[in-house]
Amino acid sequence: MQTAERSAARTQDTAVKNPKLPLQMRLHALETASLFTAGGRRIIADAASGVQLAAVLHELNETVLGRTLHIDNDGGKSFAVEVAGRRVLRVTSVEAVADPFDWSGVDALDESHRDELIRLIAAVASPGAEVRVAISALSVANDGSSKGLNVGVPVAALAEAVKVDLNSPPTAAEPVEAPIEEPVDEDAAVGETGFLDRMVSGLGPILVAWIARAPETEDRLFGPEEMVSHLAEFLDDEGEALVEQMDKLSPGKADPLCHVLGATMVEGHCVISLRADGAVLLGVIEGDATAGLLQAWNAAR
């Protein structure tokens, strides 16, 4: 084993034994091999890594001096943020992301923007995407001298919300569900390991609301209350017809089936019905349904 490999292995071993040691993470980051695209952007998560969201949060957290980080993916989606002191100060551009939030009117971020920021990051750092970063100086207009107090959103707050440990290497096991305002029952979204649960986990933050119903068990719910209650009412009225519709679409009635309907499928909203594990899930996808749907299905199989 070469000296560098031994050193890397030792560093990783120490980090595993004591994952809360930030200095070890800095050292590990320095020793990690880097890949670059033709345009000079550094690849921080490849398509198969499963750590896209965690990798972006680690990048943001590495930035102590003021910098602009341009994050993009191989699907053409991108955003740029100004970061300093491990805080995200400002979103300066968003491209090809179906983002209902208007960042142009926000000169200074604070923790109230946490969830919107997570949605934006998750839209670019989506499962199955190659994610890249390029770093540049802060723009002169935004160097801090001409602005008022900007407390920003601590990267640690973002990481905590999506259960990413910034003091351990990014791992594929980290959940990527974005927090939703006023969740009906957040605990119901985790803890099971069937096909349906793996699909929910694989879809991540694009699945913004859902209800899963199975015979003789309580409904499992996730998302904003007004959305979930509408889905629940629909299932009350049309549940049997929905199962019949799925039966028409697939001859194997016991096999998993996923049915998504939307205007363009790549932006706006879609509805999703999923049959698996003797349950029916009805939900809403926000953003690009084509980006993570098949990856989630293939991973859940």
Binding site: Q245, K248, L249, P256, A263
Partner: peptide, 29 residues
Amino acid sequence: EAKASFDDPLEGLAVQAFGDAYGAIVIDA
């Protein structure tokens, strides 16, 4: 199957919530 995928009840929900549906994806084994 195309006809069934653009049929009620799921299409009714999609149209009611988000407008006309022009795309459908069906995944099975």
